[in-house]
């Protein structure tokens, strides 16, 4: 363990940690209000360290989705980490051991990926340990804070809180849809398909988890074919 590298990682991780805290507080708050026990909510954040993936997972758990739906939904939503991890694998120092690679892999998130890619030097395991540690603390701590806050919330407010999780989704979708017509197209097409799966007689039989998977595959494929994304748009 190189102390200087580790401390630099900690420093670079603090902004991510702060950002994660407020997001995961919303996650903890809404998950517990939707009916998930506090321990499960915190355990999910600690072991998953991902936003959209675990939001979708909780959604499925709440409607008692089966394990195949859960595994496939998680796979599709988080498959982007595959590419990020691939990029990181080419930037880590060549002498990084297999054991260290197994450990570093746990912490590949959008933000950690982005910060590590900005670093000029090759990535050492010490640096990555520091960079990952702070966001993990922020993400898990925020979840716990949000989850515990629910118990001091008046009962009457709780009934309206079911919408908070969806509010958070809207906060993720709208800003890029506002700026990029291609994202707006994908969002509108996804909503159209989703409405069809909810109201068209034959399609209604499809369970929530599966319809999400089908919609994701079709709409993302169509959007990618019609509007291939340029490099600079990806951030």
């Amino acid at each position: 363990m190189k102390k200087e590298e580790f401390l630099q990682g900690i420093r670079d991780g603090i902004p991510i940690c702060l950002g994660y805290f407020s997001v995961s507080m919303a996650f903890g708050l809404t998950s517990v209000l939707s009916g998930l026990p506090i321990w499960a909510t915190v355990l999910i954040s600690l072991t998953n360290l991902t936003s959209a993936g675990q939001f979708a997972g909780v959604n499925l758990l709440l409607v008692h989705g089966n394990m195949i739906e859960l595994a496939l939904t998680t796979l599709i939503i988080n498959i982007r980490y595959f590419l990020m991890s691939l990029s990181v694998s080419q930037k880590v120092e060549s002498k990084m051991t297999l054991k260290e690679r197994f450990a570093v892999s746990f912490g590949i998130t959008d933000e950690i990926f982005a910060v590590s890619m900005q670093r000029k030097e090759n990535l050492t395991s010490s640096y990555m340990a520091g960079l990952i540690l702070m966001p993990v603390i922020g993400w898990t701590g925020g979840t716990l804070t949000g989850a515990v806050a629910t118990s001091i919330m008046p009962e009457v407010l709780s009934s309206a809180m079911g919408i908070a999780l969806y509010g958070m989704f809207i906060a993720i979708i709208i800003p890029p849809a506002r700026e990029h017509k291609n994202v707006l197209f994908a969002v509108m097409l996804a909503i159209l398909f989703s409405l069809a799966f909810a109201y068209v007689p034959g399609l209604k039989k499809c369970s929530g988890g599966w319809s999400i998977i089908i919609i994701t595959l079709i709409v993302s494929a169509v959007a990618a074919a019609l509007f291939p994304v340029e490099e600079e748009e990806e951030k």
């Binding site: 959209a52 939001f55 979708a56 959604n59 599709i76 939503i77 498959i79 982007r80 590419l83 969806y166 989704f169 809207i170 993720i172 979708i173 890029p176 849809a177 994202v183 994908a186 969002v187 097409l189 996804a190 909503i191 398909f193 989703s194 409405l195 909810a198 109201y199 319809s211 999400i212 919609i215 994701t216 709409v219 993302s220 494929a221 959007a223 990618a224 074919a225 509007f227 291939p228 994304v229 748009e233 990806e234």
Partner: peptide, 21 residues
């Protein structure tokens, strides 16, 4: 390019479909 674009759209599509209706 197509694979990268596909992955780019996935989060937005998933969250849109989950939110509405």
């Amino acid at each position: 390019k197509w694979v990268k674009s596909f992955l780019y759209y996935v989060p937005y599509v998933v969250l849109s479909a989950m939110t509405f209706p």
